[in-house]
Each structure stands twice: as C-alpha cells, then as structure tokens.
Design a binder for these strands. Structure first.
Lengths: 202, 202
DNA sequence: CTATTTACGGTACGAGCGTTGCGTAAATGA
DNA sequence: TCATTTACGCAACGCTCGTACCGTAAATAG
C-alpha cells in the first residue's frame, strides 16, 4: 500500500509526531540551547539517524517546530486603516513575544530575544532556510501591501505613498525592539507605532 | 615593574594583539562559523587556555573583534534635520553592510545576514553581551535623540513627536531589511526611509 | 516467493567548544 | 634570596552536532 508509486519501507508517522512533540517540548521549556538532538531522539524513542533523515540539521528541526506553532494570521480589512494596521502589528508582535518567551525561567535572562535571534541566525547559516523564510515574509508582506493599497485607493493614504518603506518601518520597529533593544512590545506600542508612521514627524 | 599594585606575571600584550589579529582575519574571511578557537590559537601561536583566560566564550571574542572594527560614528548636526537623519541612517547602514559582507565568497549565500545575526544571537545567549550592546545602543540612541530634540525645539518637527518610536522606525527598518529580508541598504534607501518617517503616510 | 528499495536502530567517529589539571615562567613583596 | 601570585603551554576530557557504516525491518515489483 502506502503512497502510490513509492517503493521501499515508508517513513514512520509515529516517529514524526514523537520527534516534533519532543522537540517542541524542549524548545519551549529550555530554549534553543536546551534543544539537544540526542535528547530529542531519546525522548522520541528513536535513533538519532532517524532525526537526520528528516531534518538535515538542528536548525532545520527548530524551524519546523516554530513554523508549526505559528498559526498563519489573517489580515482583516475593516476600512479603518489605522485600526487594521494596528491589529496587524499586534499580531506580528504576538508571534514575536510567543517565541521570545521560549526557554526563559522567571527572572532570568529577561531582556534577550533568545529563540527569535537563533532562528534569524539559522537563516544566515542555511540558504534553504533563508529561502523558506523569505517566501513566508513575502506572502505576509503581499497581504499587508494589498491592505495599504486599498486604503490608498480609497484616498485614506497619500497618493505617492512608499508602501515598501512603510511596511519596513512598521515591522522593522517591532523586530528592532525585540531583537536589538530587548524590549517587549504590546498593543500600546503598536498604536504609537502606527500613529507615528501615519502622521509623520513634520 | 608592570602595573602598579598588580602582582604576578602580567598578561602578554603580544598575545592579545596576535589573537585579535588572527580572529579578525578568520571572521572577516570565513564568517562566524569559520572562526574556530583552535585555529585562532594556532595562528596566534598561543595555547587555547590563553584565549579563554581573556574571553570566556567564542561569542565574547567575536564581539570584541567586531567592536574594534566599528569606529564610533559621530552624529553631525547641520540644522537640516532631513539631511542629518539621512546621514545618520547611512552610517548605521554602513556598519551593517560591513558586517554583512563578512565571510561571504562571491555568488554564495548572497542574501543572508551572517555575522550580524550571529552577534544578535550571541546577545541572547549571554547576559553580559546583551548588556554591553544595550549600553552601546543607548549611547548612540541618546545622541540621535538630542539631534531630534534640537530640531523639534527649532520648530522643524512637530511638537508632540514620539522620538522613541521615530528612532525605532528608522533603525528598525534598516535592521529589518538586513536581518530579515536580506536586502542590502544604501543611501537611496536611507533617503526614502527618512522621507517616509518625516512626511507620514496620511 | 524473491529481489529491490527505502527506513530504522545502533555504534563509532571526527570536529568544535569549553573545562580541568599540572608543570613552568615571569612578575611582586618581604 | 625566597615565597607568593598570576600567566602560560600542554594534554586530556566531556559534551554536542553531524556523518559513516552496518545489519535488519517493512514496503513494492515481478
């Protein structure tokens, strides 16, 4: 049986599930450094070679785990561009904060970006991960851009708007705070951010 | 002789210089992954323990190397806030691009952030590095904020300006492009960025 | 039923980070 | 001069990532 046309012994779905479960548990509880391939193999009751048959490196496994945790946030368009952008920023911030919380024991290491930074670094180490992440961001970006475009056509935004830079500013500020400054981001900050971007500094 | 009050054998300044030189060479030529502690020790003609006596981890050594490479860019105030901010952004981008180029052979891995991302991750792994970087950014941030504050008092910027968010937007967009998007940043982009931040989207 | 193909488990290994222990070298203080 | 203190070189080790090899298990093709 198995998949039509596939020869040989099929991959074990149980192993898949057990590995991902163990890896998720370790990553969330002990952070990126606490995610040990040998520990995952032992907890999943699987040989280490079985891990590497599915994911070529620990980075790839970690990316797979985090990708599974990120529900793809839809963008809502209520017609109020200020509210829509703020909601969108809040969703992005939520994803960041969720990763940011991984592997942190209370009181310890309270300002670092931990897992988020490790995943960014993983993109730098492996071209295929960078490509994957690029596609994800391109898709999300395209959605947000449509939102902006509609608002612009309604006349709610200036006609000569640089939507690429606008999105860089918005998302960039969030990532900058989480990754570089180490400050958490909440809805209040998202509101200030959107206000600044819309109203300008002059 | 040696330092007044210091007992025992003094640290070798030659060793210091040789280590930093070897580490810089390796980091720039082969990137973060190509920076091997044992290779550094061998090239510097020094025992590995001598490295670890000075820097507790490879991350710390790498940070020291990069910090030495970053000339501290002064912020100039010509009275034209648009120009001053653009110049400042260009300097920040220059530092990023310099690190971004490290360890990349032509044609290979052309979109990643490499060393920049690894250093951000290093901040997440070690509290003392995060603190050090925090101080550096706070200092730089304070200078930029003074620049903005002066412009605001001149009446060149709106009175109710959120200068914290403005700087997050500007620097954030640069880091976002380099780290997440993988796009290089140049003066033209800095101009678009400042224009968008000053003029607003409405 | 048999041959082929692919997955699995287990072990061993190389490479790199970081640590430990020990004998030796270079400085200071009495 | 001699004890003390700190740095150095060297070798060995434990840990983790990732790879190689091998015998075995589970599927398909004929």
């Amino acid at each position: 049986m198995a998949e039509r046309g596939r020869r040989g012994r099929p991959r074990s779905a149980e192993a898949d599930a057990a590995i991902v479960a163990a890896a998720t548990e370790l990553l969330l509880r002990h952070g990126y450094g606490g995610l040990s391939m040998e520990e995952v193999a032992e907890r999943a009751a699987v040989a280490k070679t079985t891990l590497y048959r599915r994911w070529p490196t620990k980075d790839h496994l970690a990316v797979a785990v985090v990708a599974r945790l990120q529900e793809d946030d839809e963008i809502t368009d209520t017609g109020d561009i200020r509210k829509d952008l703020t909601d969108y920023m809040e969703k992005v911030a939520g994803g960041l904060n969720r990763m940011r919380a991984a592997g942190r024991r209370p009181g310890e290491d309270s300002t670092s970006a931990g897992t988020v930074a490790e995943l960014v670094a993983a993109s730098g180490r492996h071209d295929d991960i960078a490509e994957l992440r690029g596609r994800l961001y391109a898709r999300r970006n395209a959605l947000a851009r449509e939102l902006i475009e509609r608002a612009r056509r309604r006349g709610d935004l200036r006609a000569d708007l640089d939507s690429e830079v606008l999105l860089d500013q918005l998302a960039g500020a969030l990532y900058y705070r989480v990754l570089i400054t180490g400050t958490p981001v909440d809805r209040a900050y998202a509101e200030r951010l959107v206000a600044a971007a819309l109203d300008g500094a002059l």
